[in-house]
Simulated scan of single mutants.
Amino acid sequence: MTEIIRAQLPRGPNGEKDPNDFARSGNVHILNDAIAEQAKAAGPAPPRFHLLTPDELASRPAAQYRIKRVLPAEGIAVIYGPPKSGKTFIVLDAAAAITEGREWFGYRTRPCPIVYVGLEGEGGLSQRWQAYRLVKGDAGKDRLKFVTAQLSLLLADDITDLANAIKAARADAGIVVIDTLNAASPGADENSSVDMGRIIAAAKRLQATLGGLVLLVHHAGKELSRGLRGHSSLSGAVDAILEVSRDNNDNREWAVTRAKDGPESEPRPFRLDVVEIGTDEDGDPITSCIVEPVEHKSGEVARHRKPPGGNQKIALEAIGEALKASSEYGKSGAPDFRPCVRYDAAVDAAADRLPVEKKRTRERARLAVQGLVSAGHLSYQDDWVWLP
């Protein structure tokens, strides 16, 4: 590796001022001697890599949070869900709670500035904030800013301009919400590893420039059990993933489905309450919604909760299909009407679907099946598996 030395050029005996002067006068040796003397006085350059002892590593501070066990203070996170699931309402509610420093769904928060880049409908975002402020107040409004101008993560100038605007407002080192990833990457193919790589690199550049957390709002894929829409590199590049879901009975919930420095969470149910915020020019009411947590009834969580992990969801779907195709019923204590499959067949079915490296599919599939059994999503006895 080439070593760079910064040296003060000496004045030569014949008035030489730069290397070209020394070369023309034949006094290059004077220049070389001066540089060598300064390099000796400067001493060796510090090592580029510092090797930590186990004690030094253990003494490093723990990862900080914005919402404890939900959102880290630094890095990249994604919140996603299908259309009409309520993900934007959840994001806005969480953002407001953080700016106020109040608990959110029972989790502690640490206040910080938040910049919400809303790219899918300025009018709708305005109405959502009006509804929130009307019902829950705006105690943290000084920490909350909105951007509604169009933005492309694929344009370096857009990232630079956004970062400069955030720094000028002294809102860096907080959270930047990009709603949505699709709207912020016009023309990109989300299924392409190249385009998704560019999107990820842009989000990381924004985070490195500002510090804090970049939170991407994204859509679910057509098959909800497969998680995030688009190339799988996105899920591997982020520090936390939150899923928002809604069933056919209008039951909504969110859950942490991936956290690099913490556990996944149980689903947290919520509802959207309609709020009237005014009337339009025809005298008709203008409405929006706010998020309200919903308490589970006793015993309901154990019976109806979804598998928290992305791999578990995929595994349960695959095993469910294997059970439908099975001709074995009522094995090892299962009800007579319950189809059953062997444990290894359940692992094989899950392994065929999991989006992980081929050499790790059986290991991950086995962990997913074990997790499903432990959580009560599958019954297992004497090498047979069935749905409870």
Rank of each mutant, 00 (worst) to 15 (best):
R143N: 08
F146Y: 11
V147E: 13
V147L: 11
T148A: 01
T148V: 13
A149V: 10
Q150D: 04
Q150L: 07
L151Y: 11
L151F: 15
L151W: 05
S152G: 02
S152M: 02
L153K: 01
L153E: 00
L153H: 05
L154N: 02
L154W: 03
L155N: 12
A156K: 07
D157V: 09
D157A: 12
I159F: 06
I159R: 15
T160I: 11
T160H: 14
T160G: 07
D161P: 03
N164E: 15
N164Y: 10
N164R: 14
I166T: 03
A168M: 14
A168C: 06
A168Y: 10
A169M: 13
A169L: 15
A169S: 08
R170E: 14
R170L: 10
R170I: 07
R170V: 09
A171H: 11
D172W: 05
A173K: 12
A173H: 12
I175Q: 09
V176F: 00
V177D: 12
T180Y: 08
T180W: 03
L181K: 10
L181V: 15
L181A: 15
N182W: 05
A183S: 13
A184C: 08
S185E: 01
P186F: 01
P186V: 03
P186Y: 00
G187N: 03
A188I: 03
D189W: 00
N191D: 09
S192P: 09
S192C: 07
S193D: 12
S193N: 12
V194E: 13
D195E: 11
M196Y: 00
G197M: 04
R198D: 04
R198K: 15
I200Q: 01
A201Q: 09
A203I: 09
A203D: 00
K204A: 10
R205S: 15
Q207H: 04
Q207M: 11
A208C: 04
A208R: 13
A208H: 11
A208L: 10
G211D: 05
G211K: 02
G211A: 02
G211Y: 03
G212S: 08
G212N: 08
L213K: 04
V214Y: 04
V214W: 07
V214N: 02
L215D: 00
L216K: 08
V217D: 02
V217I: 09
H218Y: 06
H218T: 04
H219E: 05
A220N: 10
G221D: 01
E223Q: 14
E223F: 06
L224Q: 13
S225R: 12
R226L: 09
R226A: 13
G227S: 09
L228P: 03
L228S: 07
G230N: 06
G230S: 08
L234N: 09
L234R: 01
L234H: 01
G236V: 07
G236P: 08
G236E: 05
G236I: 07
G236F: 13
G236Q: 06
G236K: 06
A237P: 04
V238S: 12
V238Q: 10
V238W: 01
V238G: 13
D239G: 12
D239Y: 02
D239F: 04
D239K: 08
D239H: 04
